[in-house]
Amino acid sequence: MIRVEWYEMVNELQGYRVCHPTLEHALGVTDLVALCDVEEMGEPDITLSDVLDMWKSIPIDTNAWIVHTSTNELIGYGFVEETGADRMDTCVFVHLRYKGLGIGTVLLQKVEERAKVLAKGKPGKQRLMNQLPFTNMAARNLVKNRGYHFCRLYERMKIVLEKQPQMTLLPEGVILKTFRPDVDEEALYSIYDETFRDAWGYSKKDATTWIAQKKGDGYDPSLWYIVWQNSFPVGFLMSRMQEDGLFIDLLGVKKEYRKHGIGKAMLQYVFGAAYERKQKTIILYVDSDSLTNANRLYQQVGMDIHSQTALYMKEI
């Protein structure tokens, strides 16, 4: 049974229904988020499989909310996800025709109330991260007024391939291999943990949970790669094919192997794999203040900044 709450808002439409979604709402949520994406950056950055994949990792009957009008139009969506031992992430979306009516505030209230419940009994301070378009000043002002502070800027980078990419040779003795399911999980997690441990916002997870979350909808082991020197992993790249292009999820290289062309070689290799599959659009997100200057590497291979996402934080 869906628990329903009613909020009266001062506008020409008096009734807005707030409830937890079911799987039947996944397509409506996808359409709403896509509409918000188009408004902010000119094109959608979400697919139905993205929503379903996320909903596998969060209990939507407690950690997600949707808002309907009296005519049953889905106009709002928000969620909170536990993404680490001391971190939770949230996003809130409101239909462009219904902004300024308090719907975003209601969803943020629900998110924060749930985050406080999730934080109880956990050691140390819990961080609630709110991601929103950098150009959306109304949303940024809303979260600032609720006690969040700006802490990071992420760039969505993109390239549309016009021809088969040129390959960069790996250093002598270093080889790239496709990920082998049920064989390389431990090696993959170890190189991820080592290369991202110092990254801002990193939160420790156990290997089994991390691998399971990455093997969601769109998982294709032929688009995961590990770079080896002898029997030791020194770099990795994880990507997946989406409706809007090939999405590069993570790329990392061990500190002592950086600046030797390994990251560039992995990128060009996956570009080539996408091109052979007749997918010419490549997308990724990068921290604009990356400690490894990853954004410079992406620019070197021809990627451009397409949009920016601001990350605001609030301690719970």
Rank of each mutant, 00 (worst) to 15 (best):
S190G: 05
K205E: 15
E185F: 14
R197F: 13
L188E: 03
I211H: 04
I191K: 02
W210V: 03
D198M: 11
T208I: 07
D193L: 15
I191M: 03
T208W: 13
I211K: 05
T208K: 11
Y189G: 04
Y189S: 05
Y192H: 07
S190Q: 03
I211Y: 02
A187G: 01
S190E: 14
I211W: 03
D193H: 13
A199H: 15
T209L: 03
L188C: 11
K204T: 12
I211E: 00
T209R: 15
A187S: 10
Y192E: 06
E185M: 01
T208S: 05
T195R: 10
K205M: 15
D206H: 13
A199G: 04
A187R: 01
T208A: 12
S203V: 06
D193G: 00
K205I: 14
F196I: 13
S203L: 11
I191Q: 00
G201C: 12
K204W: 04
S190N: 03
Y192M: 11
Y192A: 07
Y202W: 11
Y192S: 02
K205F: 12
S190H: 11
T195W: 01
Y189R: 08
A187D: 10
E185D: 14
A212L: 04
Y189F: 15
E186I: 14
K204H: 03
D198S: 12
K205V: 14
S203I: 12
Q213M: 10
L188Y: 06
K204P: 03
E186P: 01
A187T: 04
D206T: 01
W210Y: 09
I211Q: 12
G201H: 08
K205A: 03
T195S: 02
K204R: 13
D198K: 10
S190Y: 01
F196Q: 08
A212W: 09
W200L: 11
S203M: 08
Y202C: 07
Y189C: 00
E186G: 08
D198E: 06
E194F: 06
A207Q: 15
K214Y: 02
A207C: 11
K205T: 14
E194L: 12
T209N: 06
Q213L: 13
A199P: 02
I211P: 03
A199D: 08
D206Y: 08
Q213F: 01
A212I: 03
S203K: 05
S203Y: 14
T209E: 08
E185C: 14
W210F: 13
K214P: 05
K204V: 10
